[in-house]
Amino acid sequence: MGIPGRYVKEEELKRMAGVIEYKPTAKYAYSAGQALSVFLKGLREGKIVGRTCNSCRRIMVPPREFCEYCHSPAGEWVELPGTGRVETASVSYISARRAKLREPEVVAIIRLDAPGYRGDEPDFPGIFHRLCGVTEEEVKGGKVFGARVRPRWRPEGERRGSITDIECFERW
């Protein structure tokens, strides 16, 4: 008995009878919810807003209504300076749909500066974003790890209350 399964080539599929094609047309409106709406409003104003857990006292960015570790309600809001250090970085040569990019882009996790944090905690307020003004070689050589960065904001009139109100994080 052979192994079940018959590989089909793309061209073979085009000629095959009985193939069904279907295009979904699903559109969504995602609610940002309560805490994230405040975060997005802060971005429009050029601010990075976090929230403290009433129980473990950690600062959460992105802010949430509850701390998922303690499962307790979140407390006071804190405005952070927005500065931080590069936690990890990579260089993308492909788009979201895997098309080759003309210019590679550098993406990173930013460990944000926050009161009470030393900078080596396993859990930290952070942002996932692009880096600008950084070369591929600097990323590959490990030079950007730990680098000090700050947000480069879009001009006030262009901000829409979106994560893209920050154009990228840049070194300073």
Binding site: T88, S90, S92
Partner: peptide, 20 residues
């Protein structure tokens, strides 16, 4: 809201973890 507007490819998250 927080991630998709950046146009990420699934490989980004692996790349960031692998680099770390």
């Amino acid at each position: 809201i927080l991630e998709r507007p950046l146009g990420p490819n699934l490989i980004w998250i692996f790349a960031l973890e692998m680099a770390k």
